[in-house]
Amino acid sequence: MGATQQVPGPGTNVAKRRKERGLSQVALARRAGVSVSLLSKIEVGDRALTQGVGAALARAMELTLDELLGSAPEKNLNELNYAIRRFDIPGELPENPERLKREVDELNALRWNTELAKILQRLPSVLTRATNHAHLTGAPKAWGLVADVYSIIYWLAARHRWMHLAELATMKQRMAAERADPIAAIAAARDDAGTFLNSGDFAGGLAVVDRAIVQAESMLSGRDRAFGLGILHLRGLTLAGRLRDKQTTNRHIEAAWRASAEFSEDFAEHGIHFGPENTATHVISTASDMEQHRRAVDTAEDLIQGGLTLPATRVAPLYMNVGRSQLALGDRDSTIESLEKAWVVAPEMMAVHPTSLELTRVLVSQHKRSNERLTQIASRVGIAV
């Protein structure tokens, strides 16, 4: 199956950026600490580019990870940017402020269903009304709602790889959380560490997580403590896995499992899910990052057979991570099946997610004969087969 790409995937960007800098594969591989064979396979589409290797290559070329991976084109964000700029400027008291909590819950429901376009459409109005209400009342719960809206903005920006907007959102989220309850500050720290994760600064993200864990242990108690520590350890195990730091990864995994044992099932707070099921999805993702591919596939099979209750925001990445490991194990048919399942539950996310683009690019490159299922997936992300 010959293929030319209409829009480059992350792996293709590596070759483009390398040539722009006048580097040979040997020179770039040496700078990044990877083998020439691996770099060559990534560039031609025989191996998928992982974020861990991507971060090493980006540093070697003095790029950010999002510059290397590429980002979705920005849509019209003028209204949202206007609302964000007016964080410190109180406006009129909104009509029906009692509806704000429900409106934020509705935004989170759209987030969990990965309905990106609808979220962007509604965000400016909800953010403006929530911010005005918080300024005029000064209530911690009102500022907690503002922090929750900024968490949604961070999530949306991260999905599109609008990293400047993601970092701005977490900064405002922290400012709002300082005026809210302690658990809001922990959620903000978790999202802040996420900006380090998405930019490829995994060590910096771990430093944010470690500082927040100390804060959570001293400030929180009971259910809030288990939840706060749990979401931080999930972020920590992902960051440590990208660094291939086995000891730190295992420490965060064990702590996340201990925290999740406090809950019989997964639940959401401040728009973030936590519990045994979501902990398992993070462990699977990290196993794939650390090239423990058989473990990732086997663990996922057990989880899926037990029945998934998580929203699309977690189910689609689960299938993508399983697909990464299936592809590494040479099971291309199962990789296609995993991508199909992810597209069913989260089509808008799959259209912009770098893992979706990269897996599709490699599958197209590796398939030598026509495959209708793969052709359908490729057409959705703009890859001509």
Score class of each variant (00 low, 15 high):
M1Y: 03
Q6H: 13
P8I: 14
G11D: 04
K19D: 07
G22S: 02
S24E: 06
S40M: 11
R59Q: 03
M61R: 07
T64W: 03
L68Q: 07
G70C: 13
A72M: 08
N76Q: 09
L80T: 11
I84N: 01
R86C: 13
L93F: 15
P94Q: 10
L110D: 05
R111Y: 09
W112R: 10
I119A: 00
S125T: 15
H133T: 09
H135S: 15
V146R: 00
Y150H: 10
S151A: 15
R161A: 07
A169W: 01
Q173H: 07
M175L: 15
A176L: 07
R179F: 04
A180K: 01
A185C: 09
A185R: 04
A189F: 09
F196P: 02
G200D: 09
G204C: 11
V208L: 05
D210M: 01
I213H: 01
E217Y: 05
L220E: 06
R223S: 05
L232N: 04
H233F: 14
L234I: 12
L237N: 01
T238P: 06
R242I: 08
E262V: 06
A268M: 09
G271Q: 02
S285P: 00
M290I: 11
E291H: 08
Q292T: 07
D298S: 03
L303F: 14
Q305R: 15
L308H: 12
T313P: 03
V315L: 14
N321P: 10
L327V: 00
L329V: 13
D331G: 05
S334W: 04
S334V: 09
V344T: 15
E348V: 12
M349L: 15
S365W: 00
H367F: 12
H367S: 12
E372R: 14
I377A: 05
I377V: 13
